[in-house]
Write a protein that binds this DNA or RNA. Structure first.
Lengths: 152, 152
DNA sequence: CCAAACATGAAAGGATCTTTCATCATGCCC
DNA sequence: GGGCATGATGAAAGATCCTTTCATGTTTGG
C-alpha cells in the first residue's frame, strides 16, 4: 500500500512528462516494461495520480491575463458558503478557489483575456455572486512561478 | 498559424486526458490517425502545449496542507525583486508566485505536510528571504477548486 | 521450514505509432 | 482560365509499443 522507491520514481517522471511511453518510463525507472505497466496502472487506480493534463499556454488561447481576488461574504453561514461555492464551480474563468482563514473568506485565481474582460467579469458576475460583500483585486503583473510540480 | 476547429478539439481533449493515445484522440476528433498525429505534434512544437503533467494527489505524497501567503518587500527596487524571485524559484514548496498590484508585492501558494511544517518553513525560510518586510498567511481550510482547466 | 501470496522479467500476439506516398484542395501569378 | 506551388489529407506498412500470460523468484506468516 505505501509507495516504494520505484513508485516514487514513476510518479516523479509522469509529473514532469505525463506522456512518456510505458517503454521509456520502464527504462528510466529500471524495471521491465511489464512491471512498469502494472505499477503505473496501480498508481492510477488507487488514486495517487488523479489525472494527466496537457498544460496549454494561456496566451495561445487568449487567456493571458491572470488576476487574484480576495472575497468577503455577507454572512458566515453554511448556506451562504455553499451557495457561493457552487456558483464558483460553475464559472470556468475561476481556476482556483480556496476557503481561507484570515482577512478574506475566499481567494480566487482567475484567467481572462485582458483587463477589460476582467472588468466586465468583476462588475457583472463576480460581485453578484451569492453573498458577496466585498472583493479585493490583485492584478498579476508577472508570473514568477505557475503551478509548480510537487516536490516529494 | 491560427487554431482551427480540430486543433481546439485536440487541445481540449488533451487538457482533460493527457495520456489519450493518438488513435483514441483521432477518433474523438474525427480525423485519421496520421492527421491527428501531425496536428498534435505541431501543437507541441509551436508551444500551444507547454507540457503534459500527471496530477498527483497531494495527500498521497504528504503535502496535504495548502497555504497562501502575501508578501511585502522592504524596498521596491529591481534588484530587490530579482533577488526575492530567484530565491522563490529555488523553493520547491512554493507552487505559485505572482508579482501583483495591490496590498502585497507577491502572492505565494505553498504546499506542505501540515501546519507545523508551515510554521517551520515560515519562520526559518520565508521571512528570511531577501528583502521581505512582512507576510500575511492565509491557511486554506477547504479547496473548492484547484487548478481548473482553461476554458476556451 | 513450508506454503501461500505476491512481485518480477521474458515472451508473444495484438494494437498503436510514425513515416511514406499518392491524391486532392487552395491560393497565386501570369 | 491555366498552370504551378504549397499544403493538407487518408491509406498503407514496417517499426514500435502495449498488455497479458506464464514460469520463476521473493517475501510473509504460520
Amino acid at each position: 500500500m505505501p509507495l516504494d522507491r520505484i513508485d516514487v520514481k514513476i510518479l516523479r517522471a509522469l509529473q514532469s512528462e505525463g506522456r512518456l511511453s510505458n517503454a521509456d518510463l520502464a527504462e528510466r525507472v529500471n524495471v521491465s516494461a511489464a512491471t512498469c505497466h502494472r505499477r503505473t496502472q496501480r498508481l492510477f487506480e488507487e488514486g495517487y495520480v488523479s489525472g494527466v493534463r496537457a498544460v496549454i499556454a494561456p496566451r495561445s488561447v487568449d487567456l493571458g491575463t491572470l488576476v487574484m481576488v480576495g472575497v468577503v461574504l455577507d454572512r458566515s453561514t453554511p448556506e451562504s458558503f455553499a451557495a457561493f461555492e457552487s456558483a464558483v464551480v460553475a464559472m470556468k474563468e475561476i481556476l482556483d478557489c480556496n476557503l481561507v482563514a484570515g482577512d478574506f473568506d475566499y481567494l480566487l485565481k482567475i484567467r481572462v483575456r485582458d483587463m477589460a474582460d476582467f472588468n466586465t467579469l468583476h462588475g457583472q458576475r463576480l460581485i453578484t455572486l451569492p453573498g458577496v460583500r466585498q472583493t479585493r483585486t490583485f492584478f498579476v503583473m508577472k508570473e514568477v512561478k505557475d503551478n509548480g510540480p510537487l516536490a516529494f
